[in-house]
Design a protein around this nucleic acid. Structure first.
Length: 642
RNA sequence: GCCGGUGUAGCUCAGCUGGCAGAGCGAUUCCUUCGUAAGGAAUAGGCCGAGGGUUCAAAUCCCUCCACCGGCUCCA
């Protein structure tokens, strides 16, 4: 038998006999490693350690020290769930049970489950873990496998699709339980240190709504109780920060049943923050050479037919009949901006032309999708459209990326970047797509940003760069995008006159810094847990007089000394402790406390929401600090730092 | 849009095996004028999500719709 070569993570090559498995290769490296091997990653895919290697494979050995170990463990936890379920509900049919980022799920059917059932199943799972059953892989031939699943059309379908072919079928066995599965798994059920079933939900077989509805049980598992505990605490923290909860508590926004679903109402506190965000974006845009424009919420559907939105998205548009003519609320701002561009003739010297507008758009999203501010029917895009010559694309994209990264920096958010390439359904020639993707890639490569490729995820009219926000809890949210568009200039027949005195077509770039205000606001609320930086805080300072005797002094401070800030005075006849508690719960960055002593010396006591305090502060000193803190958009109140 | 769950006071929730609509917080009024995370008392507040049905009687049981929550699918 001849040898094959596999490539290890450090780039070194390992020669092993043909037909060697992941485990064989591990033993080749060292007997200790061989013994510890749980699974392997071959060419990026997590596989069972019994998987045969091919020549030239990239191999990573997975042990219980590897990051991938958790995936393996959770996969096994899914089997333990299935085993427990079958013990308690033998009639239940199993379908698929993979691991996920957060844990695992198992889709089952022919059984009714509620949360109480989950407790019983958890108890049974605990027994199975306690029994410490060895998990063994076994290979059976196709007929035998089909025979096992006479009553389970789902498993049979898997045998006929994913597991089709001549190879023997792999099953995993633990005690009396066995499951069609390609692995990998841990050695025994006892390795699952901690687990919890989280939720019951539903899903379609293979994610297709034409198919059967299955019951999906979500759970998670960890190697240790303390890891599980940390995970559950994080879940709890995320729940506490939920923007829908905070939005109500901090009086930021509401969504009223009467006024309509997905149509948020911004209260004064929320609007103050949105205004600050808009001012900041406007400044960035003006500095970057954008010209503000404004377009109405409503257009004749003529425009949407011209732009192509009508044929593609008419079902998701809000249409109205006006004097027997059809109008539509705008789902995008670009056709309006393209029309503005088209009102005059342009020279190549005029380009790039950059328009921006905080444009409110309306999209009739599926009802089941609406959720707080993250999916809504009406939202505002900080929308910029650039009309550029092909030779200007790279420079312009570079400038846009700079702006976007500045936004991430300002809000203390981490960025995750991806290049989305040509989808199956698309317009434009091969050459222009090729060229555009190359240009975007070149910009990203030059910028030194880490980015991934989302193949086929581009818009039908052009490739795009997607930015995701990573918040303080490490969660990712869709953020701004930069999109190239070859379609719109064509449909609107946009032109400029070139140096050669011929007409040329500009390329359009769509971009946003925030994405939508709604989505961005949601991310910020949860990212900051409602503790907005001073410059954003709806109420920046609250003055707490010790007794009503200091109300006059408090009002003077509010109106005269700090008139330039958003300052409230607490005038309810509460104890000081109560006043502090309320200000703290409202997450006001600074409190100014004034009693008889302060009034006498014309000073103030300053307390911040981080529970720090200083007495005998000069009014002018504090005001000067606040001006700096606001100007520099600092994340945390820092007057009391030193 | 699909599956499952939930709608009771401004908020959080109890009442749900049919028989007078409840608590805490908040609000209002009065007392208290207070020095670092809840001072005391009293009062007001409800078409029990909407509509229909069963019943002597419905917040409670049944049906339809609406909204929200958790997922799925979708997201220009």
């Amino acid at each position: 038998m001849s040898d094959i070569v596999v490539i290890l993570p450090d780039g070194s090559e390992l020669s092993v006999p043909e037909g060697s498995s992941v485990a064989d290769a591990a033993y080749e490296i060292g007997p200790g490693l061989g013994k510890d091997t749980v699974a392997g990653v071959v060419d990026g895919e997590l596989v069972d350690k019994a998987t045969a290697l091919h020549d030239g494979a990239n191999l990573v050995i997975v042990t219980d020290q590897s990051d991938e170990y958790l995936d393996v463990l959770r996969h096994s936890a899914a089997h333990v769930f299935a085993q427990a379920l079958q013990r308690l509900h033998p009639e239940a049919k199993l379908t698929i049970g993979p691991w996920t980022d957060q844990g695992f799920y198992y889709d089952v059917t022919n059984v009714d489950l509620d949360m109480d059932d989950l407790e019983d199943i958890e108890a049974e799972m605990a027994d199975i873990v306690e029994e410490d059953l060895p998990i063994e892989r076994e290979l059976v031939d196709r007929e035998e496998a089909l025979a096992k699943y006479e009553d389970n059309e789902f498993k049979r379908e898997i045998l006929e699709t994913e597991a089709a072919g001549d190879d023997p079928i792999s099953f995993y066995k633990q005690g009396e339980f066995e499951d069609l599965c390609k692995g990998p798994h841990v050695e025994s059920t006892g390795e699952i240190g901690a687990f919890e079933l989280l939720n019951i939900s539903s899903a379609y077989w293979r994610g297709d709504e034409e198919n059967e509805t299955l019951t999906r049980v979500y759970g998670t598992a960890f190697a240790s109780e303390s890891d599980l505990h940390d995970f559950l605490e994080m879940q709890e923290e995320a729940k506490e920060r939920d923007h829908r909860k905070l939005g109500q508590e901090l009086e930021l926004f509401s969504i009223d049943e009467t006024t309509g679903p997905g149509l948020p109402l911004y209260h004064p506190n929320g609007k103050r923050i949105l205004d600050e965000l808009a001012d900041y974006a406007k400044q960035l845009n003006l500095d970057a050479g954008y010209d503000p424009v404004e377009t109405p919420h409503l257009f004749r559907t003529e425009l949407w037919k011209k732009s192509g939105h009508y044929e593609n998205y008419v079902d998701d548009m809000f249409l109205l009949d006006v004097n027997d003519e059809e109008y539509g609320l705008k789902p995008m701002n670009c056709p309006g901006h393209a029309t503005i561009f088209d009102q005059q003739s342009w020279s190549y010297r005029d380009l790039p032309v950059r328009y921006f507008e905080d444009g409110k758009v309306y999209r009739k999203e599926q009802r089941g999708e609406l959720s707080g501010l993250s999916r809504v029917w009406s939202f505002t895009i900080d929308d910029g459209h650039l009309f550029v010559r092909p030779d200007q694309i790279e420079d312009e994209i570079n400038l846009i990326i700079d702006n976007i990264l500045e936004v991430f920096d300002t809000f203390d958010l981490e960025a995750e970047v991806a290049l989305a390439t040509r989808p199956e359904k698309s317009v434009g020639s091969d050459e222009i797509w090729e060229q555009a993707e190359t240009q975007l890639k070149a910009v990203l490569d030059d910028s030194g940003i880490d980015y991934g490729i989302e193949a086929g995820d581009g818009a039908f009219y052009g490739p795009k760069i997607d930015f995701a926000f990573k918040d303080a809890l490490g969660r990712k949210w869709d953020g701004p995008t930069v999109q190239l568009d070859f379609n719109m200039p064509d449909r609107f027949d946009l032109t400029y006159t070139g140096e050669d005195n011929e007409e040329h077509q500009p390329v359009m770039i769509h971009r946003a810094l925030y994405g939508s205000y709604e989505r961005f606001f949601m991310v910020l609320i949860e990212h900051f847990n409602g503790k907005f930086p001073f410059w954003l805080a709806p109420e920046q300072v609250r003055i707490l007089p010790i007794s009503d005797d200091q109300l006059g002094y408090a009002k003077r401070l509010q109106n005269r000394d700090f008139g330039d800030f958003r300052v409230g005075v607490e005038d309810r006849s509460w104890t000081l402790g109560r006043k502090i508690r309320e200000a703290q719960e409202d997450r006001v960055p600074y409190m100014i406390i004034v009693g008889g002593d302060e009034q006498e010396t014309q000073t103030i006591s300053v307390r911040d929401r981080k529970e720090r305090e200083r007495k005998d502060v000069e009014i002018d000193d504090f005001r000067a600090h606040l001006e700096d803190e606001r100007e520099e958009k600092r994340a945390e109140p820092d007057f009391l730092d030193e």
